[in-house]
Design a protein around this nucleic acid. Structure first.
Length: 873
DNA sequence: CGATCCCGCCACATT
DNA sequence: AATGTGGCGGGATCG
C-alpha cells in the first residue's frame, strides 16, 4: 500500500531527489516500519540509539560513497527536522524506533514483507514506467539499497533482471540508467524471435516434453544444441567492448532471465512450469544435470519470476499434470509486438525503428542466438546510445524512439488488458478449475454476449490455463479449448487450454469486432463466401444483431468450400484446409469486388484475412491459436485479451452499433463501433480491423497481419463484460500495414477505453467468431465443432480447421480474384503451425509442419540470421 | 512436507 | 588490495 502511495506521489522522477526521498524514508522508517519491515531495526540493532547510531546504520547500509556524502546529512536532517525532529534525537528516535521496531520485531516482518517481489515493486515504484526521453534517471545502487532498506545484493537481483529486459542499463560502477518500458516491447520481440530460434521447436511440444522431460530429464537439448549460454540477446554489447567477450559467466542471471522470458514468448500456452524452465536452462547451459543444480536453478528462477511478476509480465499459476500440481508461471505481458520485424516499411510510427536494413539487424541483440554468434553490431544502435558512458556499454535502447511510443501505448494497453484479463481469468478460474469449460456450457445462453448477435465474434483469448474459456456464444462454438483439455485431462491441463484461445462473453452485451471489413459486404453480397467472411461479417454483424443473423446463416451455408472445411475440416484435419478456405475466399472477392475492387488486390486480401480469421475462430478457437504460431512462431497468437468489465449493467444491445466505416470504404477495415449507450459514456469503439489500405495490397502479408484487430467495446451497459478482441496476429510477420494499424488501432481504442474505464481489451490474437446462427445450417456446424472439441483429438481437429482459416484463404482468394497473388503460399504451412496447439497430443506431426510456416517466419528470421551470421562472419 | 526464497558467504571482476 | 558483482545454496518460512 505504501508503495503505491509513494509511487504515486513520487512517480515522477526517480532518484534525483533522493535526498528528499531518503529523508522521508528514513524518517519514515519508523512509520513505514509498520508496513515495511525493513531491516532498520536490525540495523539499528545493537547500538546505542542515538541519532548517530541511526545514522551509522544508515550509512552502513549505504555504500561508502553514500556514507561520506552528504546524504547522510541530508537524510538525517530531514528526518530530524521533519519528523522526529526536533527533539533531541535519541529520544524520539528511540521512541519511535523502538516502539516501531519492537513491534516489528515482534510482528516479525514476515518473510513476505521482505520478499524480492515486494522489494522490486518498491524499486519500480520509484521510477516512471515511461520516463520522458529527456529525463534520464540514473540509479545508484547504493542509494536504492539504503532507501529500500536492503542489502545491495538484493538490488542486484532486481537490476539484473531489469537489465535483461532493457529496462535499465548499467552505466557505470554502481550506476544504472533507468529506461523504463519504452523499449520493452521491442525487447520482448527480440526475445521472442530469439526464442523461436532456440526453443521454437521445443515449445511445440511443450507439453509433451514436459512430461518427457520429467522423466528423462532433459533431453531436450537436442533441439538446442549449441547454444551456449550466451546471452541471447545481449544487450550488452552493442558494441563490443572487450568485455563482450566476457566473462564471468556472463551473468547468468541476466541470461537466465532472458531465456526464461523467451520460453514464455515461445510457448503457446504462455505458461511455463518452473521445472521445465529449469531443465531447459540447465541443458543449455550444461549437460550435467544434478539434482542440486536443478534445485539451484529453480531458486534462481524464483528470483527472476519475482521480478517479472512485479513487472506485471507473468503471474504465478499452477499446472496440474498427471504428476500433480506444479508451480508455473503464466505470461501476462504483451504478446504481440507492434514493431515489426519484418517489414521494412513500417509504417506507422513504429515501425521502423530501425532504419537500416533489416530488422534483423535491428533486433538487436539478437540473438545470436542460436548459434552463438552474435552479432555484433547493431551498429545501428550505436547511434543512439544512451547513457553510455563509459565502458560498459550500455546500450540500451537500440530502438528508435518512435517505436517506443507505440510500444508504450501498447504496453499500456497491454497492461490494462492484462489486468482485465486477470480479473477475468480469476473469475473464470474460480468456478472451477477444470472447468475451464464451465463457461462453455452454456453456449446458447445469453450469457454470452452473443445473444444479440447471432454470431458473435469472439476474440480469443487464451485462457490461462486454468481457466479458460469460453466461448461461444451461441451455439456453435464452444469449447474448443476445452476439448483439448478434456482430452488430456480433465482438469488441468492447463497447458492445453492455455494455448487455446477463448473468449468469454459474459454477458450479453458485447460486441466485437473484427477486422474484416470487406466481409460485410461480402457476406451480404455473398453469403457463400464462407465462413471466414462470415465471421468477419459476423463480427460486424454482431453488432447489429439482427442483421447478423442472416448473415451468419448465410455464411455458414453458403460458403461451400470454406464451410465445408470447417466442419469437415475438423474431421479432416488439417492443413489442407487452408487451401480450401482460400478457395472460398476467392469467390468472395468477386463479390466483394465492388468494394474490394477499388483496391483490388488488397481489398480482397483483407477480406480474406478476416475470413480466415473468422474461420478459425469460429471453428475452434484453438486453431486459431495455432495459426498464429505458425505465422510467427510464436504464440503470440495466443495472447489473449481479456476484457473485463465490470460493468454494471448489461449491455444494452441497442446501444451498440457497429458502424462500419467500411461501408464507405470497403476495404478498409471494419470497425466496430459501439455506441455507448447512455450509460456508458465511456466507451464505444471500435476499431478497425485492419486497415484497409494496407490490406489492399493484398499480400499475403496482410493476412498475417491481419490480425485483425478487433475490438470490443463494451458499451456502458455492457460493461459488465468485457470483451476483447484480438487481432490476430500474425502480425509480426506481416509487413506493414497491417501490423501497423493493428497496433494503432488497438492503441486507440485502448486508450479510450482506458480513459473511460471500461474495460476493454484487445487482444492480439485471434478472434473467434462463433457462428451460431439460428439457421439450421448452422447446426451442422455445431455438431462439428463440438465434436472437435470433445474428441480427444480435438486438438488436431481444431487445428486443422483453423489452419484452414487463415492464411490459406487469403492466398487463394487473391489469386482468383485479382490476381496479384503473392506467393504467399507459404503460409499454409504456417497455418498448420498454428494448430499445433498445445496439447495436442495428437497431432504432433502436423505441428511440426510448422516448419513450413516457420519457414515463413523463419524466413524472415532466417534471413536475419543468415545475414547476421554472414555479417559476423 | 513441499514450495518459496531470504540471507549472506564467498569467488570472481573491476578499480 | 579494496570494492563491486553476483553465483550459490543452506535453511527458514510459507501454505
Amino acid at each position: 500500500e505504501n508503495i503505491f502511495d509513494r509511487s504515486r506521489m513520487a512517480p515522477k522522477t526517480p532518484i534525483k531527489n533522493e535526498p528528499v526521498d531518503l529523508s522521508k524514508q528514513k524518517g519514515c522508517t519508523p512509520e513505514r516500519n509498520p508496513i515495511t519491515p525493513v531491516k532498520l531495526t536490525d540495523r539499528h540493532q545493537p547500538d546505542p540509539w542515538t541519532p548517530t547510531a541511526n545514522l551509522k546504520i544508515l550509512v552502513s547500509a549505504a555504500s561508502p560513497d553514500m556514507r561520506d556524502r552528504e546524504k547522510k546529512k541530508e537524510l538525517f536532517r530531514p528526518i530530524e527536522n521533519s519528523e522526529q525532529s526536533d527533539t533531541p534525537d535519541s529520544l524520539q528516535y528511540d521512541m519511535v524506533d523502538d516502539s516501531t521496531v519492537d513491534e516489528f520485531e515482534k510482528q516479525r516482518p514476515s518473510r513476505k514483507q521482505k520478499s524480492l517481489g515486494l522489494l522490486c515493486q518498491k524499486f519500480l515504484a520509484r521510477y516512471p514506467s515511461y520516463p520522458l526521453s529527456t529525463e534520464k534517471t540514473t540509479i545508484s545502487l547504493d542509494e536504492v539499497a539504503s532507501i529500500l532498506g536492503v542489502e545491495r545484493r538484493r538490488i542486484y537481483d532486481i537490476v539484473n533482471v531489469l537489465e535483461s529486459l532493457h529496462l535499465v542499463s548499467r552505466v557505470a560502477k554502481n550506476q544504472y540508467c533507468w529506461h523504463g518500458r519504452h523499449n520493452l516491447s521491442q525487447t520482448l520481440k527480440t526475445l521472442q524471435e530469439a526464442g523461436e530460434l532456440q526453443y521454437g521447436e521445443l515449445m511445440t511440444f511443450q507439453h509433451k516434453e514436459q512430461d518427457l522431460e520429467y522423466k528423462f530429464g532433459e533431453r531436450k537439448k537436442e533441439t538446442i544444441p549449441d547454444t551456449q549460454d550466451r546471452p541471447l540477446l545481449d544487450f550488452s554489447e552493442p558494441d563490443c567492448t572487450s568485455a563482450s567477450a566476457n566473462s564471468r559467466k556472463d551473468k547468468s542471471l541476466r541470461i537466465m532471465s532472458q531465456k526464461f522470458v523467451m520460453l514464455f514468448l515461445v510457448s503457446k500456452t504462455k505458461i511455463v512450469t518452473l521445472d521445465i524452465a529449469a531443465k531447459i536452462l540447465i541443458e543449455e547451459t550444461q549437460d550435467t544435470v544434478d539434482h542440486s543444480k536443478f534445485k539451484t536453478k529453480v531458486r534462481r528462477l524464483y528470483d527472476i519470476a519475482n521480478v517479472l511478476t512485479s513487472l506485471g509480465l507473468i503471474k504465478k499459476v499452477h499446472v496440474t499434470e498427471e504428476r500433480g500440481r506444479k508451480p508455473a508461471f503464466k505470461w501476462i505481458g504483451p504478446v504481440e509486438f507492434p514493431g515489426k520485424t519484418d517489414e521494412p516499411r513500417g509504417n506507422k510510427t513504429t515501425s521502423d525503428p530501425l532504419p537500416q536494413t533489416q530488422r534483423g539487424v535491428c533486433a538487436p541483440y539478437q540473438i545470436c542466438a542460436t548459434r552463438r554468434q552474435r552479432f555484433t553490431r547493431h551498429a545501428s544502435f550505436n547511434g543512439a546510445q544512451p547513457c553510455e558512458g563509459t565502458r560498459r556499454k550500455v546500450s540500451s535502447e537500440p530502438n528508435s524512439p518512435r517505436q517506443e511510443r507505440q510500444d508504450e501505448y501498447c504496453s499500456k494497453m497491454i497492461n490494462l488488458a492484462a489486468v482485465c484479463r486477470q480479473k477475468i481469468e480469476e473469475d473464470t478460474r474460480n468456478p472451477s478449475t477444470a472447468s475451464t469449460l464451465s463457461l462453455l456450457p452454456v453456449p446458447g445462453d445469453s450469457d454470452f454476449c452473443v445473444n444479440p448477435l447471432p454470431q458473435a465474434v469472439f476474440p480469443m483469448v487464451q485462457a490461462d490455463m486454468p481457466n479458460l474459456a469460453l466461448l461461444n456464444g451461441v451455439s456453435s462454438q464452444t469449447l474448443h479449448p476445452s476439448t483439448p483439455a478434456a482430452s488430456k485431462t480433465e482438469n488441468g491441463k492447463p497447458t492445453l487450454l492455455p494455448s487455446q484461445p477463448f473468449l468469454c462473453f459474459p454477458s450479453s452485451s458485447l460486441f466485437m469486432l473484427c477486422g474484416g471489413l470487406q466481409e460485410n459486404n461480402l457476406r451480404e453480397t455473398l453469403p457463400t463466401t464462407g465462413e471466414v467472411e462470415n465471421r468477419s461479417a459476423e463480427a460486424q454483424a454482431a453488432v447489429p444483431p439482427a442483421a447478423c443473423q442472416k448473415r451468419s446463416s448465410h455464411k455458414c451455408t453458403s460458403p461451400s468450400a470454406p464451410v465445408d472445411d470447417e466442419e469437415p475440416a475438423a474431421k479432416k484435419q488439417t492443413m489442407e484446409q487452408s487451401d480450401v478456405p482460400l478457395s472460398l475466399v476467392v469467390p468472395k472477392k468477386p463479390f466483394e469486388s465492388p468494394k474490394a475492387e477499388s483496391i483490388p488486390g488488397s481489398g480482397c486480401t483483407p477480406a480474406v484475412h478476416l475470413e480466415a480469421f473468422h474461420l478459425d475462430l469460429a471453428s475452434p478457437a484453438a486453431p486459431e491459436a495455432a495459426d498464429k504460431e505458425s505465422t510467427k512462431a510464436l504464440d503470440s497468437q495466443e495472447q489473449e485479451k481479456w476484457s473485463q468489465n465490470k460493468d454494471l449493467d448489461e449491455p444494452s444491445p441497442g446501444n451498440e452499433h457497429i458502424s462500419k466505416e467500411n461501408a464507405n470504404q470497403p476495404f478498409l477495415p471494419q470497425y466496430l463501433y459501439v455506441q455507448p449507450t447512455a450509460g456508458l459514456s465511456s466507451f464505444n469503439f471500435l476499431f478497425s480491423a485492419n486497415q484497409a489500405p494496407g490490406a489492399i495490397s493484398l499480400a499475403a502479408s496482410q493476412l498475417p497481419s491481419l490480425s485483425v484487430p478487433c475490438v470490443v467495446v463494451p458499451s456502458a451497459a455492457m460493461a459488465s463484460f468485457p470483451v476483447v478482441c484480438s487481432p490476430t496476429v500474425t502480425g509480426p510477420l506481416s509487413p506493414v500495414p497491417d501490423g501497423s494499424f493493428s497496433a494503432a488501432a488497438s492503441m486507440n481504442f485502448s486508450m479510450s477505453g482506458l480513459a473511460s474505464t471500461a474495460p476493454v481489451f484487445i487482444g492480439t490474437t485471434a478472434v473467434v467468431t462463433p457462428k451460431i446462427s439460428p439457421t439450421p445450417s448452422v447446426d451442422p456446424q455445431q455438431p462439428a465443432h463440438p465434436t472437435l472439441h470433445l474428441s480427444p483429438c480435438g486438438a488436431l481437429k481444431l487445428d486443422s480447421p483453423v489452419c484452414m482459416g487463415h492464411p490459406v484463404t487469403l492466398l487463394k482468394l487473391q489469386q482468383p480474384s485479382s490476381a496479384p497473388l503473392t506467393p504467399k503460399s507459404i503460409r499454409p504451412a504456417r497455418h498448420e503451425a498454428f494448430f499445433k496447439t498445445p496439447g495436442s497430443l495428437g497431432g504432433p506431426v502436423a505441428w511440426k509442419k510448422n516448419e513450413g510456416n516457420q519457414t515463413r517466419n523463419a524466413s524472415s528470421v532466417q534471413r536475419r540470421l543468415e545475414i547476421s551470421s554472414t555479417s559476423p562472419d
